[in-house]
């Protein structure tokens, strides 16, 4: 009797789609953020050479954590189709470099801020907003990760800090450029930016 009950439960669990487990998006974000924190707190990585290793490791984590393709498409929105397939690919690469250059440097300076994982806020069928707070001595900073389900994984496509959405902020900038200029000119601007950084 007991055995049949447990196998029944097992079958029940197996038949459930992964997404129905509440908390998967939050756990995914938390898992990745924890990995980053582990790197930052690694006592073996000290000094300038340690900093370089830290940055490289964080980039590896961010590749898995973020869906840069989704992020790029959503950033350009309707303008995405103005780019041909090749341009789209290059845009995604350049945009990724810009974001990593800007934010990895910043993250490496973080020390012992506490992070609270508050809740999940479903946006659509496939997207969820994971709401977190960074507690510093000075203030509480709300950081929301918007994630999309890709197969069994949840990957970040937008980060909202103090109400400011990353992709919306860049969309406004890119839109201003694409109103007057060609996609090729936009790519040239990005190439210069990456080359400079």
């Amino acid at each position: 009797m007991k055995k049949s009950l447990s196998s029944f439960i097992l079958v029940l669990f197996l038949s459930l789609p992964l997404s129905s487990f509440a908390g998967a998006p939050l756990d995914s974000v938390k898992g990745n953020v924890d990995k980053v924190l582990d790197v930052l707190r690694d006592p073996a990585l000290k000094g300038e050479s340690g900093k370089k290793t830290k940055k490289a490791k964080i980039r590896t984590i961010s590749d898995k954590m973020f869906d840069y393709n989704e992020l790029s498409r959503r950033t350009l929105g309707q303008n995405w189709t103005k780019l041909n397939a090749e341009q789209q690919k290059e845009f995604t690469e350049l945009y990724k470099s810009i974001l990593e250059d800007a934010y990895v440097d910043k993250i490496v300076t973080y020390t012992d801020e506490k992070i609270l994982y508050n809740k999940e806020n479903p946006l659509t069928e496939k997207t969820v907003e994971v709401q977190t707070t960074i507690v510093t001595k000075k203030a509480d900073i709300p950081i929301f990760y918007r994630v999309i389900q890709k197969g069994p994984e949840w990957r970040v496509y937008d980060v909202v800090i103090e109400g400011v959405s990353l992709i919306n902020n860049y969309r406004t900038q890119f839109r201003e450029i694409l109103t007057n200029k060609t996609p090729e000119a936009l790519l040239e601007t990005l190439r210069k930016k990456v080359g400079k950084a």
């Binding site: 810009i98 250059d101 440097d105 400011v164 902020n169 406004t172 900038q173 201003e176 930016k193």
Partner: peptide
Amino acid sequence: KAAIDPYVSIRDAYTQN
């Protein structure tokens, strides 16, 4: 450093915030 056009980026951040 992160912005493509800092003026537009700040204006948008202000509006969103």
